[in-house]
């Protein structure tokens, strides 16, 4: 069970492809960001995140 991150939206997942961006995901990521309420979160606004969930801070 390897957690991967989408190279575009940085969302964490276990699938090979991001189901939102339809891009291959990467195992090379670092930093964790959990967005619970994207509407009220300044961090989510800064990073243009609109969906709650777990994200990586850096993906390569």
């Amino acid at each position: 069970m390897v957690v991967k991150a989408c190279t575009k939206c940085h969302r964490l997942m276990e699938e090979e492809r991001c189901f939102i961006c339809d891009l291959p995901s990467s195992i090379n990521w670092s930093g964790l960001l959990i967005i619970i309420d994207p509407e009220n979160s300044d961090i989510a606004k800064e990073l243009h995140i609109t969906l709650p969930g777990e994200y990586a801070l850096r993906v390569r």
Partner: peptide, 9 residues
């Protein structure tokens, strides 16, 4: 009311 949690490496 926790909006987000940040874990920088």
């Amino acid at each position: 009311e926790v909006n987000s949690i940040l874990v920088p490496d």
